[in-house]
Nucleic acid binder design. Sequence first.
DNA 1: CTGAAAGCGCTTACAG
DNA 2: CTGAAAGCGCTTACAG
Lengths: 334, 334
Amino acid sequence: MKNVTIADVAKQAEVSKSTVSQYLNKRYDYMGEKTKQRIQEAVEKLGYQPNIVARSLKQKATKTIGVIVANILHNFTTKVVRAIEDVCHASDFHTIICNADDDPVKEKYYIEMLRAKQVDGLIIFPTGDNRDLYQKMLDSSYPVVFMDREVEGMDIPSIMLHNEKAAELAVEHFLEKGYRRIGMMTTSLINHTTPRVERVEGYKKALRRSGIPIYKDYIISGEPQSLQTELEELLHLERPPEGILAGNDLVLIEILKYAKQKGVRVPEDLAVIGIDDVSFASFYTPAITTVAQPTFKMGKAGAELLLNIVQKQEETTKQASLRFEPTLMIRDSV
Amino acid sequence: MKNVTIADVAKQAEVSKSTVSQYLNKRYDYMGEKTKQRIQEAVEKLGYQPNIVARSLKQKATKTIGVIVANILHNFTTKVVRAIEDVCHASDFHTIICNADDDPVKEKYYIEMLRAKQVDGLIIFPTGDNRDLYQKMLDSSYPVVFMDREVEGMDIPSIMLHNEKAAELAVEHFLEKGYRRIGMMTTSLINHTTPRVERVEGYKKALRRSGIPIYKDYIISGEPQSLQTELEELLHLERPPEGILAGNDLVLIEILKYAKQKGVRVPEDLAVIGIDDVSFASFYTPAITTVAQPTFKMGKAGAELLLNIVQKQEETTKQASLRFEPTLMIRDSV
DNA sequence: CTGAAAGCGCTTACAG
DNA sequence: CTGAAAGCGCTTACAG
């Protein structure tokens, strides 16, 4: 079964390819009624389906954007991606999702691959370690929007949570509930990943504001695999924290696993707040108090910003960056 | 900044476009050493990146496959998709994921869209309600593989769990633990979705084999939103079940939510087993006994099968269908 | 060992 | 109101 092309339709309808193309693109201001009909019949008879690849080549636009996430395992990421897809879909854009797995090499591979595929723009949760590439995109004024993180000194807009506030909200809730010895645990800080750094900053600020001393020992960061042992040490300090703030969903899960395994009671032995409103928060026992990110709004904002840039209604510049407000979801874990 | 094309490279290197193309495609059996070098230098100097859209048009292959999932909310789906991506990535294929949201209209839209984008093949978690379209793909021998579900009478290979066995494993575990009054709850059966139907079948078989009567009242199905009220009724029967099998992860979550809200103790008041090994199973309290699907293996098998078909090493036929074995993960909820 | 030419399936000024 | 022609950026027999 040969693929039917616009030429076949033209022949069948006894008009030129141009006319068929006009018809298909709904540019029939002056097209004869019978012509339209003949083309429509030919299209149906032959079961013609346009070849988008050919169109893209000619139009130099694919109506597709790429999304490169740093790590698909974060619940936040999944949610944001869904929102991006929804927005794009509504504007008739398609999305290609790639997972860089926190690896700059993979990120580079995907950026190059997606650009080779001629996607019209990119939303990146940047690893931060491909500055030359980011710069190249800027130089060629290729549409890019960063999500969740920013890259210092790079004039690319970022969609971000108000991270300091998220941590402050959590710490203030601990304080209100009478906790004074509050720890914080986060995934690795070595890459200076924006949300992590800012959340730790917010944690410190909130404590300082209440005149509570900040113990270095109370601030833990590391890869998820090492968190269990870190936690073990933390809780065996002479004066261990009575409450702990999990910097994101993966950290929260490690804490809950540890608690379960060691018979640490939440919140009696250890109160917990997690940043990111995990799926099971509401029906876990105890229900987990979290700080929720407006994932849908953030995804939507990122997609809309990118599409605006693609459609030249906006400039790729840090000016366009947006911060979103976190919300404290009070439940039973503190 | 103009996009640099193969013509620019050719001019720069003072060779023809053909030669550059050969070089880029590593067809340089007989290419002069200096020629290669000149081309390589030109490529670097100009920062040339090939345009995959143009290549795809010519080669009539995009090295991209489409994945249309019925419902991205299932944990199973996410896992399988990741495995598919991994396999494709390793074979230098790209993937475009679309979520049909259990809606045949969306499914149709995506099938047509992806074919228009000239993807080389499709992995579909079929809604089952687009038989004409499925048939059309078969007729034009377009590569398709079904995942998770099969469509009756359609000669397309499916990658599936041994669903009956999954339910049997769960029921047998209930029985071993001394339970006799065992209910089953699943998402809607009206579309005869393979796994749901087969799991209910397995549940019945296992009971029958042990000579336990099957109560219609004990088998509940419906949309996730209505499950709470259904559950309420079920547990207020004169002789309510003491254990319940959740047909999938979404159902399990509804059950746990209900239990939490109504103070139903698991497993004391109600024992629970879920099909699908949810993320929180191991650290929930109580840890949830589940029947796990080999998600990674299944995704891998589906992707490999499709890629084989695309590369003409295998035929699109139901013969190629594969069933996978479930595993009982014994924990504390029964 | 390398190049000229045709062609993949579209779109788009432009001419009439 | 419709068509001929050029061109998007590649690849691929084929010729030499």
